[in-house]
């Protein structure tokens, strides 16, 4: 029970920070790094982050007038962005997410996120016979995620699956760990793993990957 108080504090922080400047600054920085060419990625991150913060400072009075539009991104989105940024700083590629086929997140991973989002959406409007979103408050769900992530990593290691499997499983596991520690953003595990923004992005990536595969097959 020693963790009860920190849990409550973190849960309250998670609930109250439904949208924050760091979220948007991170997003703007990511977009800047993805779009702007530069010779040194570290300087590119610094310049884009500074520009994003300046934009937020100038426009901070505009954002509230949009009214409850922005929500907290999921912890999985956060982990994925950090992993992408880290990969961008470390890796040899010229642009963010323009990675080799070995590290490109596989089609079925994006499809899983897409399908999960659709299930949650249909559940939200009350057209499923089960109460899927409420399962996210059940403490057994993070245990399931922990087990599945472990199996995924073992399978990736033993069967020599492409590198992205281990990265994706690690992101999911870290997001689950952060959720267990903080209960952010809402105390519901689904909100920690998938937000509507990531879900929409998964659609794009799934279609993009399908197109990429088809193009590659046609040219080979």
């Amino acid at each position: 029970m020693a963790l009860a108080e920190p849990h409550r504090v973190a849960a309250n922080i998670g609930r109250s920070t439904t949208f924050s400047c760091p979220d948007l600054a991170g997003g703007l920085s990511w977009l800047g790094v993805a779009c702007l060419p530069s010779y040194d990625r570290r300087w590119r991150w610094l310049i884009c982050s500074t520009a994003a913060l300046l934009v937020l400072w100038v426009w901070s009075w505009v954002l509230p007038s949009l009214g409850l539009v922005f929500q907290t991104p999921s912890l999985l989105t956060l982990c994925a962005c950090l992993a992408a940024a880290w990969s961008d700083v470390q890796g040899p590629s010229a642009r963010l997410f323009r990675t080799s086929s070995n590290t490109r997140i596989g089609t079925w991973a994006w499809l899983s996120l897409t399908v999960t989002g659709w299930v949650l959406l249909i559940d939200a409007v009350g057209h499923l016979p089960w109460d899927v979103y409420s399962w996210g408050f059940d403490p057994r769900l993070p245990w399931c995620a922990w087990g599945l992530a472990g199996l995924w990593m073992v399978a990736a290691y033993l069967t020599g699956l492409p590198e992205w499997h281990a990265k994706a499983a690690t992101c999911w596991l870290v997001a689950t760990g952060l959720f267990v520690a903080t209960h952010a953003p809402s105390g519901n595990a689904w909100d920690a793993w998938l937000d509507p923004g990531l879900w929409l992005y998964a659609h794009y990536q799934w279609i993009n990957n399908r197109w990429f595969q088809r193009t590659r097959i046609n040219h080979s």
Binding site: M1, L3, H7, Q90, W143, W146, A149, L173, G177, V180
Partner: peptide, 28 residues
């Protein structure tokens, strides 16, 4: 920053850490 042969060890440590956190959580 991390030799490839040590990565599985890191993954295992992260996995165990999350498991310990789940275990330490208040009872269901």
């Amino acid at each position: 920053w991390l030799p490839p042969n040590l990565r599985p060890v890191l993954w295992l440590l992260v996995w165990l850490l999350v498991g310990v956190m789940l275990w330490l959580k208040p009872p269901t």
